[in-house]
Computed example of a mutant assay.
Amino acid sequence: MPDDIDNEKRALRADLRERRQILSDAARDAAGAGVRAQLDALLESTGATSISCFLSTSTEPSTREFLNGALERGIRVLLPITRADGLLDWAVATADGDIAEGLFGLPEPVGEVLGPIAVNDVDLLIIPAAAIDHTGMRLGWGRGYFDKTLGSMERCPPVYAVIYDSEYVETVPADVHDQPVTGVVTPTQTFTFATQSL
């Protein structure tokens, strides 16, 4: 059975990855602007003063403009750094901070590294996803970093995943270790799952 789920996940990820790669620059720009507006409104409604957020890749809905705006408003932002052991370290984002290629070719901050428990102090987590289903279950990209992080937090604050509108789907294949999210942010909407408690 786990093999069936793994195969389903692989197939869905491949399809989603391909769809992302064929998006036009105009569609990407529009998605980035929409995501920024949605995330700005989410910050406002939650009153968060300390957040974690990922640095988007070229095919993800962009979080870069949102991050710059959050820093200008004095929000403390932690950015994830992948480790070989499957855990995430964190670094405090700065307006002029350097970005380098981390494990798996992902953009990651350069600077003082904080350990995995640093994220326990944030008010809101903004994480990447391949897809989110209507129950709040998240399909990640298969490395398990965010599932491990969410699963190990003593007191998990609200967690919102950023995806394109078409990636908010009826259902995603899930294993026991997969973690749900509090809500989803797309370029056109923010949706909070009423029954979700992490």
Results as ranks from 00 to 15, higher is better:
57 T>P: 09
79 L>F: 06
111 G>N: 04
71 L>V: 10
103 L>P: 12
42 L>M: 01
196 Q>A: 15
108 E>W: 03
5 I>R: 06
83 R>M: 12
186 T>M: 01
117 I>P: 08
156 C>K: 09
42 L>D: 00
142 G>N: 10
198 L>A: 14
170 E>G: 13
194 A>Y: 08
119 V>R: 00
113 V>E: 08
157 P>Y: 11
169 V>T: 12
197 S>V: 12
186 T>H: 01
96 D>S: 14
44 E>S: 15
144 G>L: 08
163 I>K: 03
22 I>N: 10
27 A>V: 07
192 T>A: 14
153 M>R: 03
153 M>S: 13
98 D>M: 11
90 W>I: 10
86 G>M: 09
165 D>V: 02
104 F>M: 14
24 S>E: 04
49 T>E: 13
73 R>D: 13
134 H>Y: 10
81 I>S: 06
75 I>F: 05
6 D>V: 13
12 L>Q: 12
168 Y>T: 07
85 D>V: 12
49 T>L: 08
116 P>K: 06
102 G>Q: 03
176 V>W: 09
98 D>Y: 04
31 A>T: 02
109 P>N: 07
99 I>S: 06
152 S>I: 07
64 R>L: 09
72 E>L: 14
56 S>F: 03
31 A>G: 04
105 G>M: 04
51 I>Q: 03
165 D>N: 15
63 T>Y: 07
142 G>V: 14
152 S>F: 05
148 K>C: 11
16 L>G: 01
183 G>A: 08
79 L>A: 09
189 Q>F: 07
180 P>G: 02
71 L>A: 14
13 R>T: 07
32 G>H: 02
188 T>Q: 12
160 Y>N: 04
20 R>M: 11
35 V>R: 03
61 P>L: 05
167 E>D: 15
193 F>P: 00
160 Y>K: 08
87 L>R: 13
133 D>L: 09
164 Y>L: 07
195 T>E: 14
27 A>N: 03
145 Y>R: 04
92 V>P: 04
7 N>M: 14
